[in-house]
């Protein structure tokens, strides 16, 4: 598994699309930091961008890389290696390179700007962690979609609709529910208090 992970990582770090993706985040983060000195505004803008972009790139890049590597996967599967180690190594390679892109793309400008010493650094770290987590989740979804559908067009279609659902429709449904139940008093039940934190985290993730 570790060997496949290493070689996938080695192949992907030299991929021009991932380099462009990293540069995009470097420019966006630097741009936001230079436009305003209010770090709270930068955090809000950055979280809005990452919440939309990182799942989109995660799912599209995951599907694209899987399809372009399907013959290489066939080569690996014909070797005396277990399926589990091949797929785990392959997925870990994609997820970690996407995460690395975000870490460099967002982290580097923050370090250069000296945000690491500011009180807002913790919030920046949360935004960055959530973006990385979203990339991992969506590249896993992409992997499942690509494995289940041999037809590339169908796979890409499902991937785009999945992203659209979680990025737009899911939030819409959530807001609609809030609107519909706004007259109801908020009652903290035993169930609610138990599930409150995971539910908030789940909403924040998508």
């Amino acid at each position: 598994m570790l060997k496949i992970f290493t070689y996938t990582l080695f192949d992907l770090v030299r991929n021009r699309w991932l380099i462009i993706y990293t540069i995009f985040f470097v420019l966006i983060t630097l741009g936001l930091l230079l436009i305003t000195s209010d770090l709270t505004k930068v955090i809000i803008s950055l979280s809005n961008i990452t919440l939309v972009i990182s799942p989109l790139i995660g799912i599209l890049y995951g599907v694209m890389y899987y399809y372009s590597s399907s013959e290489f996967l066939t080569f690996l599967l014909a070797q005396p290696l277990s399926r589990k180690s091949i797929f785990t190594g392959f997925f870990a390679g994609i997820a970690s390179t996407l995460g690395l892109s975000l870490l460099i793309g967002i982290g580097l400008p923050l370090v250069l700007y000296g945000v690491t010493f500011s009180p807002e650094f913790k919030t920046f770290a949360i935004v960055l962690s959530m973006a990385i987590l979203l990339s991992v989740i969506f590249s896993l979804i992409a992997f499942i979609i690509a494995l289940r559908h041999n037809d590339r067009i169908k796979g890409f279609g499902i991937a785009i609709f999945t992203w659209l659902f979680f990025a737009v429709v899911y939030d819409g449904i959530f807001l609609l529910l809030l609107l519909l139940f706004r007259d109801y008093p908020l009652k903290i039940s035993r169930w609610h208090s138990r599930w409150q934190i995971p539910l908030i985290l789940l909403e924040f993730s998508f």
């Binding site: 070689y7 192949d11 372009s68 013959e71 290489f72 080569f75 014909a78």
Partner: peptide, 19 residues
């Protein structure tokens, strides 16, 4: 999967990591 160590395989289509 270990039986495959006795088999060599040349696939029909050759696509390997491009980079």
């Amino acid at each position: 999967h270990l039986y495959r160590q006795h088999i060599s395989h040349v696939a029909q289509i050759a696509h390997f990591p491009e980079n």
